[in-house]
Simulated assay, not measured.
Amino acid sequence: MTPQDLLQLLSQRQVRRLRVIENLLRGRKTVSTLYWGQRYGLLYLLGLDKALQRGALDQVAQTLVTQRLAAWTQDEQPQLRLTPAGHTQQQATTYYHPQTALTWPRVDLKLVTQRLFLAVQVVSQYAHHNVQYYPLMTDLATQQAVRQWFHQIKSTALAQMVLTALTHSLTQLPELTAMVTTAGLSGYQQPGQTTAQLARTYQESAWEIYLRRVDGVIQIATDARKRDHPLHPLLAPAWQTPVTRSAQATLAAVTTTSLSLDQVAQQRHIKPSTVREHLLEAAIMLPVTAVPYDRLLPQTTRQDLLAALPGALDDWEYMALTPELQARYDFFTFRLLAIWCGKQGEMA
């Protein structure tokens, strides 16, 4: 990621923690990372660069500071805010904003990418009656899934069916994004190009090219959710709930029973703190209708806390509450209210 890529992830009005951005990219799903990822509008970054090393963005951020496009703020973690010059440059820069980004946390990107790219290669070679080729390097599970799909759907019309489906998806994207997606695919006498190669060709950063490619892959996966799509059996399993199975089980127990949170913990043989973490994870990642806010946040609780908190959500601090309110309401309730309020803004 270059300084110009990071510039697009920062804000002039909102101080942003560099570690949150880093942990999102690395796929770290702590409640704190998810919460601030939601507040920054950057949850789509979750797991996009799992190989990123801790601290890898420090020098990138420092370059922006040196260029006076961003400034550090005092905190226990490195925090950045765009300067007026940085905000001006951000607004003046033509940078790609993926159109499918809101759905990215719900897709296993590695699974869908590997299956799609191998399937396209297999179909292309099959259409040209070529059996002497080197298949793309993928894991065994991907190879087996594509092999099973191919033998189930194989026909003389398969290549045209896949071409028609891919064309339908790609025409919904900006032209350059469609071109980048297509150029990354391998087929008969057509080696797929890397993000680095495409970055040189189109004079964009490798990260921006990567965002375009992910956008294209997810658009195809979205269309493949329809049962009559030729890639449906292959790509549909890539869609997943954005919360862990354990968090799903906790949410179900809270939603379908009248047990207290401590009783749910006993029933599930987990710590009470884990129950609360599960519920916060679900609240962040799922639609507002999926969480029983009326039970967890009664109207009187909302009124008491909102009357004592500042208007700007990012300025809320639990320790700034009076000792009386802290004694009545724990941090879980405070954070859940912040998530709920944030969701109201999304729905507005």
Rank of each mutant, 00 (worst) to 15 (best):
L185M: 15
S186E: 04
Q193R: 15
R212I: 01
L185F: 09
T194P: 05
Y202I: 06
S186H: 10
E208Y: 00
Q203H: 14
R200N: 06
Q189E: 15
T201A: 15
Y188Q: 10
I209V: 13
A183S: 13
L198Q: 15
Q193I: 02
P191Y: 12
T177C: 12
E208G: 00
A206L: 02
W207Y: 14
A199K: 10
S205D: 12
Q193T: 05
Y202G: 05
E175K: 04
R213A: 11
Y188H: 15
Q189L: 15
T201M: 13
R212V: 01
P191Q: 08
L185V: 03
Y188G: 02
T182R: 05
P174N: 06
T201N: 05
E204V: 03
Q197Y: 06
R213H: 09
L176F: 02
T182M: 09
P191S: 10
E208K: 00
A199L: 11
L211M: 10
T181D: 12
G187L: 08
T177I: 06
L176C: 05
Y210V: 00
A196F: 07
T195S: 07
S186W: 05
G184H: 06
T201V: 13
E175P: 00
Q190L: 12
T181E: 10
E204A: 08
A183W: 06
Q189D: 12
E208V: 04
P191G: 07
S186G: 08
T181S: 14
A178K: 00
T201K: 14
T201E: 11
T177W: 03
L198G: 02
Y188I: 04
E204I: 04
L198S: 04
P191N: 11
A206Y: 00
T194W: 11
S186F: 05
A178Y: 00
Q203W: 05
S186Q: 06
V180I: 15
Q197K: 09
L211C: 05
Q203F: 09
R213G: 01
S205Y: 04
Y210T: 13
I209C: 05
L211N: 02
R200S: 11
E208W: 00
A199R: 12
P174Y: 00
T177F: 04
A196L: 13
R200H: 09
Q189P: 03
G184A: 11
M179T: 14
Y188F: 15
W207C: 08
T201S: 13
M179D: 07
Q193K: 15
A178L: 01
L176V: 01
E204P: 00
V180D: 02
T194A: 10
L185N: 01
E175F: 00
L176A: 03
R200L: 12
Y188P: 06
R200T: 11
T194K: 10
Y210N: 12
E204H: 10
Y202K: 03
